[in-house]
Nucleic acid binder design. Structure first.
Lengths: 343, 343
DNA sequence: TTTATAGCCGAAAACGTTTTCGAAACGACC
DNA sequence: GGTCGTTTCGAAAACGTTTTCGGCTATAAA
């Protein structure tokens, strides 16, 4: 059973394909009588224009590609949610791919999207993306591109990010304002820009409040897991039993810290104040509830899509457009874990 | 700057489009000399076949559509992960849509995918899907369809599910074997089949072990949230202070129960044993760690895709294929929360 | 009666690829 | 020289739509 085509409609009505097409698209130069006949028959036969043909003819598919490191990830799934909803509003569909934090895979996914001839690409880079050849290829091919969250500064494109340094500054300052002076930082891996920026924000906050930075209070994750949180909690307790506050790179790590402290009778927030990062769902349901930094994931996704759409439409109309970098503001979400009691 | 086409290659080489196409696809009837010339030029000019044209010609796009209720959801994102990985292995891309648990939106998304002429559709229904007209339309259009997790029994298609009744039976029996006799069940909403099946599994386990079913021990969620878990925990404590075990429809609800009990000094598992459902990540990091039922999300996704692929290929080859229903086995994940101490 | 003007319609090209089918060229063999 | 087979190539149709452009008819104006 084949799909109905314009040609079939035309033949059964005894008119030309052209007229059928025009009737369906509301052109003015088709009489009301034939228009209605066409519409009626099209309805009856469940006609829908063949998307393949339309794509070929119009050289566009109303489809974008999205590449993220991991889909099973609270933040990225929220961003994706924002992208999908906003895309739907504007009649766009999204092909979703994950790079699994591997550059080779990321490059492969980019190639796939280029070959598919998507109308545009949204990408958040994998952690070890040192090579940008594939991104350059996107630009060479003149495909609209917007980077979000984890970006490459070397690639000229619109970017939607959060200000990691500022956010980390506020997180640390929050602990300071709660009365902490000796504050440890469990930071992210060495390379990713985000981890570096947050670490710098931490230092800046200490500096502003006259606390000397002590590198021994900084612990570096390699995998940013729950288990690492537990391990570093133990380590901190032996290295610095008098620690007053901890700023963890991520809620997951912070939850690991809580878990270890809970088991070992070290009280959060009575003995030590704690703040995480991302405002992951779990931070509301753990005991004690975890203070955190809210990253507006859906907003980031929606904004990234809108920037991409702007670029797509500008190019189609042969209009110029500006590459911008949008920095979303984060906010401290104050919960129980940071209500430091002092000594 | 336009993309290179077969025609351009042909013209600069002074040969026909046909020969260029054949050279690129490794046909035998093109001489080694011309083949190499074509390959070389294609490489230089970064030629990639125009996907729009290929789709039109072949009447397929190597793209499938996926509709899930929510993307920001641990289980569904895992299923999606399984789908995407398996699809990638077979050279397929996926367009992802969410129905947001609304039938109207679901119907709209189905229409979009039909119009896009995807090669097949994977769908998990929204909760209030009582109307199946849109699914029937997929079948009428002869589009390969596989349902997973939340399915409609009325629609003939391959299905990949878990055996909710069996899983709930095992969860309840697990509590019984730990020594619980008075066991409450916080069940899901009234309509969805999954909630009904789990409730029946609960009853069956009681029956098998000679415990009379008491409807007053069953509490019905409407939104299946953390807050509902807390509320019902409170309610259970006043209604049945001597409760020994609780089987919650979902880990999230179970975590709500833990949260309330933790705050009010009612000890899990000393006073009451608890088991959830889904084995989502949080169950490992909460204190006490939550026993649960593991649902193999990625496996479900991978399997669903493979079934779809089978159907796609069978149709292309005009071979018959069978509709099957695959029931994945779940397993009890025993953690701290179910280690009941008795009285 | 001619001319201008709407109103309606359709031929045809274009999008870029794939595949069928036949043809040309060439050598080998009888 | 004719026949046959092999190798290499290309014309053309097909996939289904969109859009331009010109043409036809009938009516109104001159």
């Amino acid at each position: 059973m084949k799909d109905t085509t314009l040609k079939e409609l035309a033949e059964t009505l005894g008119i030309s394909v052209t007229t059928v097409s025009k009737a369906l698209k509301g052109y003015a130069d088709v009489s009301p009588k034939t228009r209605e006949a066409v519409l009626k028959l099209a309805e009856e036969l469940h006609f829908t224009p063949n998307a393949f043909a339309v794509n070929l003819r119009k050289q566009e598919s109303k489809t974008i590609g999205v590449i993220i490191p991991e889909i099973v990830h609270h933040f990225f799934s929220k961003v994706l949610n924002g992208i999908l909803d906003e895309a739907a509003k504007h009649g766009y569909l999204a092909i979703v791919l994950q790079s699994g934090e591997s550059v080779e895979l990321e490059r492969k996914q980019v190639d796939l999207l280029i070959n598919k001839r998507v109308d545009g690409i949204l990408i958040s880079l994998s952690n070890d993306s040192n090579d940008e050849a594939h991104l350059k290829e996107i630009i060479r091919r003149n495909i609209p591109l917007v980077q979000f969250d984890k970006i490459s500064k070397l690639i000229p494109s619109t970017k939607v990010v959060i200000n990691d340094r500022q956010a980390a500054f506020e997180a640390t300052e929050h602990l300071i304002l709660k009365g902490c002076r000796k504050i440890a930082h469990i930071r992210g891996p060495v390379n990713p820009q985000g981890a570096i920026d947050r670490w710098m924000g931490y230092k800046l906050a200490l500096e502003k409040h006259g606390i000397t930075y002590n590198p021994k209070l900084v612990y570096t994750c390699t995998h940013v897991t729950f288990e690492e949180g537990r391990e570093f909690a133990k380590q901190i307790l032996t290295d610095h039993p008098d620690v007053e506050g901890i700023f963890a790179i991520t809620d997951l790590v912070a939850v690991g810290v809580i878990s270890y402290f809970n088991e070992n009778g070290f009280k959060v927030p009575d003995n030590v104040a704690l703040i995480g990062f991302s405002n992951w769902f779990m931070s509301q349901v753990i005991t004690p509830q975890l203070s955190s930094i809210d990253q507006p994931g859906e907003e980031m996704g929606a904004l990234a899509f809108n920037c991409l759409l702007e670029e797509i439409e500008a190019r189609k109309a042969n209009k110029p457009y500006d590459l911008k970098t949008i920095s979303l503001t984060t906010s401290v979400v104050e919960r129980q874990s940071s209500q430091f009691k002092g000594k």
